[in-house]
Amino acid sequence: MSGADHDFGAFVAARATTLLRVAYLACGDEAEAEDLLQTALERTYRNWDRVRRDTVEPYVRRVIINTAISRARRRAILNIIPMRVPPERAARSTDVDLRHVLMDALRGLPPRQRAVVVLRYWEDLSETQTAEVLGCTLGTVKSQASKAMAKLRTALGEETVEGVIGNAHA
C-alpha cells in the first residue's frame, strides 16, 4: 500500500461517520446518504494527489452537498420522490418521532437551503466556511439560511425549531 493510499484510508477511517451524517442530513435517506458518501470518497480518491491535506474534509463535504443538490434537481425534473424510512422502522420514542418530523421538514426545503442548514447548524461551520463549501457568496448563505429557518419555523413551530437546531450537537 502506498503512502497516499494509507493517508486516504486513515482519513476515511477517521471521518467517515461524520461525513455520512452530513450526507444523510443533505438528502434525508439512509441508502442515498451511503451512496452520496461513496461517490464523494471516490471522487476524492481520484483527485487525492491534487487535494491539499488541510482541506480534505471541506472538499468531501462540498462533493456531498453538490451531488445531493444535483440529484435533487434531477429528481425534481423527473418527478421522482426518494423512499423514506422503511415502515418496519417505526418510531419508538418522542425523540425518534421528533427526528422524523425534522427530517420530513428538511426534505421539504429546496436542496440549497437544506445544505446551508446542515452545514451551518449540524456541522457548525461558520457562514464563511459554508459559503466556501457551497461555492457561493456570504450573502447567499445568509439569505438561504434565513429562508430555510423561516420555512422550518412555519412547518414545525418556533419552539421546536429552536430546540432541535440549538441541540443539534447534543
Rank of each mutant, 00 (worst) to 15 (best):
S2G: 15
G3Q: 09
A4Y: 01
A4K: 04
H6F: 08
H6M: 11
A14L: 15
L20T: 08
R21N: 15
A23D: 02
D29V: 11
D29S: 12
A33C: 13
D35Y: 03
A40K: 01
L41D: 06
R43C: 09
R46I: 09
R46V: 14
R46M: 08
W48M: 13
R52L: 13
D54A: 13
T55S: 12
V56E: 04
N66F: 11
A68N: 05
S70D: 15
A72P: 11
R73A: 12
R74P: 03
R75Q: 11
A76C: 05
N79I: 05
N79T: 12
P82V: 06
V85L: 09
P87Q: 05
R89V: 11
R92V: 15
D104T: 15
G108D: 08
L109I: 04
P110W: 02
V116S: 10
V117S: 04
V118R: 02
L125F: 14
L125E: 10
E127Q: 15
T128S: 05
Q129F: 01
Q129P: 08
A131E: 12
C136Y: 03
G139N: 12
T140M: 03
K151S: 15
K151V: 13
R153L: 00
T154D: 14
E158V: 10
I165Y: 00
I165C: 00
